[in-house]
Amino acid sequence: MTKVRFWIADHFVMIAAILVLLYLFLPVAYTFVFSFNNYKKSNISWNPEGSPTLAHWQNPCGPPGLCDSLVMSLQVGALSTIIATVFGSMIAFALVRHKFRGRAGANLLVFLPMSTPEIVMGASLLTIFVQGYYRVGLKLGFWTIVIAHIVFCISFVVTNVKARLQSLDPRLEEAAQDLFADPRSTFWRVTFPLVLPGISAAALLAFSLSFDDFIITNFVSGDASTFPKFVYVSYLRGIPAEANVVGFSMFVIAVGLTVAGQLISNGRKAA
């Protein structure tokens, strides 16, 4: 009896999880379907006449500004991911592997940005950019977006890399030192490769957060536009279906790349 119950309980959890994943994907599916809509004014309701159409897929860069905003999102994402991952990983190493004065303060400084609502962070950055930092030539635009994204990505990187470092088996590094590896080569040949999966997961998360950020970007971007801001701004006059094409394609590319990466690393492990 208990076995039967456990079987049901086991599968119940998995079924529930799959339903939750479907729920997560439901709006993505809507975005996909409405990329084929032959709409007149706004792409909100389905127009049975002439739909589905491939017109929007044939020229996704048609609406002015759309592809420029996508390119800017990718550039902002890449730059802020690289800088935040380097800075954040360094902080994580210091916090986990070193004892030093001011550790509690450093922890707090990392923790606070994560516990600040985006709107407060955006408001404070806008205030300092227009009231102070413009004096050194920093105008609202690409660079202020990058600066802001690095701030909120650093904390996420630190948390992720820290967790990975804390779960490492210290005996592996001890073994390396027993074999007369100096600290430098122990770090680069043992510790770093072991932490690398944590660092790359953190980088992936940082990129997705940067790519999808709207609230902070909206505050600090001035006239510059990222992809989410483009979509939000065009909402009132109607979002072009080409934005659905781009949004859905980015989703497919992200899933495709990460699944491919997973398969490659699985293959390496098996070999």
């Binding site: 993505v28 790519f211 980015m250 989703f251």
Partner: peptide, 25 residues
């Protein structure tokens, strides 16, 4: 890992587009 990617992947469609999809749903 694939499931973890599935949890993060909708971010790439943009949170604004997904919220508008909810408005339609």
């Amino acid at each position: 890992n694939v499931m973890m990617i599935c949890v993060v992947a909708p971010f790439f469609t943009s949170f604004i587009l997904r919220t508008i999809a909810w408005r339609q749903i």
